[in-house]
Structure formats: structure tokens, C-alpha cells
């Protein structure tokens, strides 16, 4: 018999004559304590994310490219990795187009194997969109895809994330239901709640463990 058959036979034998326990999932318990008035969602999200060293900015659908330009200048970042196949990637590219002297916009447009060394060693910052955010825990929702691959939000030391204010929800349960996650998960889905951190040495909190050292969230108030 195979290991699988042996394991399943043992487990089934142990359950002989029993019924599965009924599903008494208490939706109220995972939603009611985590509800916020519409006007407070943004402030709660910012408060929680800033408490773990995230930088947040309020901006608009038209102003954010200029804000990114300023933030890149302040940090003296020479280049920014973008996803040209997304609407926000295209918008930023249009803002930067034909203006020499600005940081270089790099496109993640080929398999990682073809430029892995450059991604690791010479890509100081990236910009991605988000699917929304969760006010209860201060979390961004990211579903990387073909246009905006997984490593964009992980390898560059500075990560800019765009968040539409209208897509901030109260809690994880609500997000899963509304976006129908159970009906089809992407290859990789992420909740990101700040820059990478660790407290593994004497419980002293240090940021920039293996992922981004800086997370900068741009909240589009009119979107």
C-alpha cells in the first residue's frame, strides 16, 4: 500500500461510525467587532499602518504621479520599477514621458530569469496597485498577476502602493465574500501590512529584514 493509502486508512478507521461536526461558523464574531463608520476607515488604516513604519499620503487620481515624482526626488531614488501593462503604470509613464532628468522608469515586462541580477542589485524602488485594503488590521490586498508580478512588491527596498479609498473594507471576512475569493484564488494572493520587519534578536523591532525597508501607501481619495 502507498503512504497515502495507509494514512487515509488509519484516519478513516479512527473515524468509523462518527459524523463530521456541523459547521457553526459565527459570521458576527469575525465581523461585528471589526466594523467602522465609512468616514473612519481611512484614518484607522493610516493609524495602524503608520504604527508599523508605513508612510501614507492622501492624494488624488490626477495628482499622484506628481507626488511619486516628488517622493522619488526626496529619497534620491534613481529609478522606479513599474508595470506598464496596468492603467496606473501607463498613467505614470505618461507623466514621466519626454521629461529628461527624472528617475528612470523600468518595466517588469520579461521573465525574471532574464534580469534577476538587475532586479536584486539595481532596482531600488517599485510601484504597484492594490486590490483594496482592510481597515481592521491595516492591510493592503495584492493579487500579483502577469502584468504586475509577485516580486515587484518584495525585492525592491522601497515599495510604493496605490490604494483607492473606495476599496478600503472593514475586515477580511467581508473582503473574501465581496471579492468572491473562494470561487477562484490567483496563483499568489497577499496581505501586506507594513514594511518587512523582525524581532528575532532580543525582541528588538528592526525594519527591512528581507523584504522592502520602506512601504509608501498613496491613498487616492477620489477613487
Amino acid at each position: 500500500m502507498s503512504a497515502k493509502a495507509n494514512i487515509l486508512a488509519k484516519l478513516r478507521n479512527s473515524l468509523a461510525g462518527t459524523q463530521p461536526i456541523a459547521d457553526d461558523y459565527d459570521v458576527a464574531l469575525v465581523t461585528e467587532p471589526w466594523r467602522y463608520p465609512a468616514g473612519e476607515r481611512i484614518s484607522r488604516l493610516r493609524q495602524l499602518m503608520e504604527a508599523v513604519h508605513t508612510e501614507t499620503h492622501l492624494t488624488t487620481t490626477t495628482d499622484w504621479p506628481a507626488l511619486v515624482e516628488r517622493l522619488l526626488a526626496v529619497r534620491q531614488l534613481p529609478s522606479l520599477l513599474i508595470a506598464p501593462g496596468t492603467p496606473h503604470g501607463a498613467q505614470l509613464a505618461a507623466h514621466f514621458a519626454g521629461r529628461p532628468g527624472l528617475p528612470v522608469l523600468k518595466a517588469y515586462d520579461r521573465p525574471v530569469e532574464e534580469w534577476k541580477a538587475e532586479l536584486f542589485d539595481d532596482t531600488p524602488a517599485s510601484l504597484t496597485g492594490t486590490l483594496g485594503a482592510i481597515a481592521a488590521t491595516g492591510s493592503l490586498i495584492l493579487w500579483p498577476d502577469r502584468h504586475e508580478p509577485r516580486l515587484m512588491s518584495l525585492v525592491p527596498p522601497v515599495h510604493f502602493a496605490l490604494l483607492k479609498a473606495s476599496q478600503i473594507r472593514d475586515n477580511l471576512y467581508e473582503v473574501m465574500q465581496e471579492q468572491r475569493w473562494a470561487a477562484g484564488m490567483p496563483t499568489n494572493a497577499l496581505l501586506v501590512s507594513g514594511p518587512s520587519k523582525t524581532a528575532d534578536i532580543e525582541q528588538v523591532l528592526a525594519y527591512g529584514a528581507h523584504g522592502p525597508k520602506d512601504l509608501i501607501v498613496l491613498i487616492l481619495e477620489d477613487a
Partner: peptide
């Protein structure tokens, strides 16, 4: 309340 990353992997 949550860890920095919740990583949900559903395929290669």
C-alpha cells in the same frame, strides 16, 4: 493583529 505578510499560494 496581523503579520506583515499573509502569503496565500494556490499554484506555480
Amino acid at each position: 493583529g496581523i503579520t506583515t505578510y499573509v502569503n496565500m499560494i494556490s499554484g506555480p
